[in-house]
Design a protein around this nucleic acid. Structure first.
Length: 798
RNA sequence: GCCGAUGUGGCGGAAUUGGUAGACGCACACGACUCAAAAUCGUGCGGGAAACCAUGUGGGUUCGAGUCCCACCAUCGGUACCA
């Protein structure tokens, strides 16, 4: 009888749904486990084969934890605000809400067809007012604590999406989403002070179990550096120029300064600048360049000397010139640098090009050829001479602090988070602008501030939000003084709703607070969160920031949201390239489920390779997994009665329990599947499996292939469901090999094997070995014999 | 440039963390079943006649290295004038 997966899978999915088999309970006395996967953006294309890989992985862990007696929370939801729905709305004049609903329904159906044990009673959707009410509420709390502020500043503006972007969303100078060019544009934006949390976002990584590469990437992104700020006087006036440097010890080698084109000194000292037109012209040209262009012309440095003003190097009172150049960024440090061409590649290149002085202050290298950027003994540096880098930095900082012209300073690459989007399909920012009172947050009882129903979704001419056209909605009263006032028309970025969704799952229907304290205390932190590496510097950083903020205002009990974070590899097309319609290598999960069933799909995605590495799709291998499940199905043909494992299989089964149990925790699903295959092969050789063996086998396989195993379990008549059973345990005693095949080596090369009893007397082993390889030893000179107990016997010969 | 990862049969990949390299699967070949094919069930399968040679390359440590160390090469990700 061949396995009818269609009927069987539907049958069990219905049972689970009806019985709520996998829903988390509110029994807070039980030990808990909270597993989380990234909720999808419900795109019109439906589920991608990449989605189920991490979902299956954590589903397996969740199912195992349940069998181990945990109260498991394994939820799913939809991150449904976002540009694709809005763009589709513009094109086809359908409200994004309608498209989103359709897509969500489709996604949900697809996910259910794969048999994930999600607790659907807790589904969340970021676009529902009862959800985004709390997104807005969190924003207001941030505002109240001074962590949300409005700023007019040059921002990254995507020419395609017509929207401002956060730094994190700009990839190689183009938009992360659509690939269009990104230019700088002045715009008034809501900003979130994530920089205030920079140090804690680094420090607290020490206490959590994230993959090391994830921690590294977060640390690099936050980009902490230690150094000093130093003031340079400008001759002939009271103005000062402040710089940040990580190498204050090289101050004696500072031969000029550079300010960024946007630096304010160009305004404050305008009257003193002799070549102002030239400077202004350079500034203008720089403003036209996008970040991408600035990076592209990387090789050739440009700049203009600012004539009429000079800076004074505080260590030797020498006058040095000040230049303007776009190799100095306004957004990092102080927007101005002291240039030490002898010991910095960029400064060296600049100095060479413009004929500026180069003074060596560290011994080593060949300054006539290139900058010397390594550590060396200080020279030409008066009181620093003879010191190494570390000591010199200490000494100069103390000196600067004493003279009050500088101080120790830590800097971060991380910038504040640009939080405004000039778009319709996002959470309205719950702020009102009043001529008299300034920005005023909506009273909390007025939340949610719902998105108005509109018909036109196009952004305005100047990249304004489509909401700007909604005069009725915009005009309101100031919550503070009651005078006419206007609403903010920008909306929040997609990252807003996903920054806290894991908290809502904990208590999704609560209309008094985002989640009850009791439930939060029980369920937090998330025990295991798996997601893509592409979210390491975006979502993961943002949500840690929000969580820490909520912790600070006493709303969540843990400093960190996620105890453990792992990541999965991508699924590529069969040609090894990223799946894309244009390459014609896209696999539709529905097709696979229809042809082979959900269990095959799941087993295949786990078997295809190491979970954390990329893997190419292989249709042949899918068939191999189908064949495997078919063999499992047919094992019922030789099922016999039996209450204990057969002697021939006992060891194998105990080993398998151990292996699969640890493999699942280590995400080594591929070797677990191999273990199952090996077991099946063994049972086929015996042409016999008894009920005790079958029972254990089915429970072990259940997390991977939940439908077929439940069905076989029922047919075999165990009188219950696997979901109500316990995860099997193994006996270490039963795993011990009492007969060992001992390899014999000459000089580390295999020459034969013998069979010994475990812990056999060494003399007896030696005797056996010599007997076994006697002929090969003839005429050889034995130098040494090494016996590693129960492992190997190596004879060193000459 | 910097940071991170990867490199093992025809292919995807195993290897108890220094102890028989190639588990498991795919592909392939052969056998059984069949009039035949598919499916299924078996058997074999790194190279070489053998000695031996084989885990990207070249060195090293060790009785013994895919695994540890040094120097390279290649591929893939992330990041980039961050002072």
């Amino acid at each position: 009888m061949s396995y009818d997966f269609k009927t069987v899978e539907k049958k069990w999915q219905d049972v689970w749904e009806k019985e709520g088999t996998y829903n988390a309970t509110n029994d807070f006395t039980k030990k808990k486990w909270y597993g989380l996967v990234e909720f999808p953006y419900p795109s019109g294309q439906g589920l991608h084969v990449g989605h189920p890989r991490p979902y299956t992985a954590l589903d397996i862990i969740a199912r195992k934890k349940r069998l181990q007696g945990y109260n498991v929370l394994f939820p799913m939801g939809f991150d449904a605000f976002g540009l694709p729905a809005e763009n589709f709305a513009i094109k086809n004049h359908v409200h994004p809400k309608i498209i989103t609903k359709k897509n969500v329904d489709h996604f949900r159906e697809q996910l259910k067809a794969l048999g994930f044990s999600f607790d659907w009673s807790r589904e969340v959707n970021t676009t529902y007012p009862d959800y985004y009410k709390w997104t807005q509420w969190i924003f207001i709390q941030l505002y109240k604590k001074g962590l949300a502020y409005k700023a007019t500043m040059p921002i990254n503006f995507c020419t395609g999406c017509k929207v401002g972007l956060a730094n994190e969303e700009v990839v190689n100078g183009v938009c992360e989403r659509c690939g269009s060019e990104v230019v700088q544009k002045e715009k008034s934006q809501w900003m979130l002070k994530i920089t205030e949390y920079a140090q804690r976002l680094i420090d607290d990584l020490d206490d959590i179990d994230f993959l090391e590469k994830i921690k590294t990437q977060q640390r690099n992104w936050i980009g902490r550096s230690e150094g000093a700020e130093v003031e340079f006087n400008i001759s002939g006036c009271d103005e000062k120029l402040l710089v940040y440097t990580t190498r204050p010890d090289t101050l004696f080698g500072a031969t000029y300064m550079v300010v960024s084109p946007e630096h304010e000194i160009l305004k404050t000292l305008k009257d003193k600048i002799e070549n102002y037109d030239e400077v202004k012209d350079y500034k203008y040209k720089a403003s036209l360049k996008s970040d991408f262009e600035r990076a592209e012309i990387n090789k050739e440095k440009t700049g203009v000397e600012i004539k009429g003003i000079k800076a004074i190097n505080p260590v030797n009172n020498k006058e040095i010139p000040i230049w303007i150049s776009d190799y100095v960024l306004v957004s990092y440090g102080t927007g101005a640098i002291m240039a030490v061409p002898a010991h910095d590649d960029r400064d060296y290149e600049f100095a060479k090009k413009f004929g500026l002085d180069i003074i060596q202050v560290l011994e080593g290298g060949d300054i006539s050829k290139e900058a010397f950027t390594e550590d060396g003994t200080h020279i030409n540096s008066e009181f620093l001479n003879g010191l190494n880098k570390e000591d010199a930095i200490e000494k100069i900082i103390n000196w600067l602090e004493e003279k009050k012209i500088g101080k120790r300073k830590v800097n971060y690459k991380l910038r504040d988070w640009v939080f405004s989007r000039q778009r319709y399909w996002g959470e309205p920012i719950p702020m009102v602008y009043c001529e008299d009172c300034g920005w005023v947050p909506l009273p909390e009882e007025e939340l949610p501030l719902k998105l108005p129903e509109v018909e036109e979704f196009e952004p305005g001419e100047n990249g304004e939000s489509p909401l700007a056209k909604q005069t009725e909605w915009i005009n309101t009263k100031c919550p503070h003084c009651g005078k006419p006032a206007k609403r903010e028309t920008d909306t929040m970025p997609q990252w807003a709703g996903s920054s806290w969704y894991f908290l809502r799952y904990i208590d999704p229907h609560n209309d008094k607070e985002f989640a009850s304290k009791e439930a939060l205390d029980y369920w937090l932190p998330v025990d295991w969160y798996n997601g893509g590496m592409e979210h390491t510097t975006l979502h993961l950083l943002y949500s840690r920031f929000w969580h820490k903020f909520l912790y600070d205002i006493g709303k969540v009990p843990t400093k960190e949201p996620y105890q453990k974070r792992t990541s999965h590899g991508m699924i590529l097309g069969s040609n090894g390239e990223k799946m894309s319609k244009s390459k014609g290598n896209v696999i539709n999960p529905d097709d696979i489920v229809n042809e082979f069933g959900a269990d095959t799909f799941r087993v295949y995605e786990m078997f295809m390779g190491p979970f954390d590495q990329d893997a190419s799709w292989s249709m042949e291998s899918v068939r191999g997994c189908f064949k495997f499940l078919d063999r499992v199905w047919n094992m019922q043909d030789f099922l016999v009665e039996g209450e204990a494992y057969q002697p021939e299989t006992e060891k194998m089964i105990h080993k398998a329990i151990k292996k699969v149990s640890s493999d699942i925790e280590e995400l080594k699903f591929n070797t677990s599947v191999s273990t199952f295959m090996t077991m099946v092969n063994e049972f086929y050789k015996l042409r016999k499996i008894n009920k005790a063996e079958f029972r254990t086998f089915l429970i072990l396989l259940n997390p991977f292939a939940p439908h077929i195993t439940e069905e076989l379990f029922e047919r075999a008549g165990y009188g219950t469901q696997i979901s109500k059973c316990e995860w099997p345990s193994y006996d270490e005693e039963k795993i011990i090999e009492d007969e060992i095949t001992l390899p014999i080596q000459f000089n580390g090369k295999l020459k034969g094997t013998i069979s010994i009893v475990k812990d056999e007397d060494e003399a007896s082993v030696r005797e056996k070995v010599h007997e076994a390889v006697a002929s090969k030893l003839e005429g050889k000179n034995i130098v040494k014999e090494i016996y590693v107990k129960n492992k190997i016997y190596n004879i060193v010969i000459k």
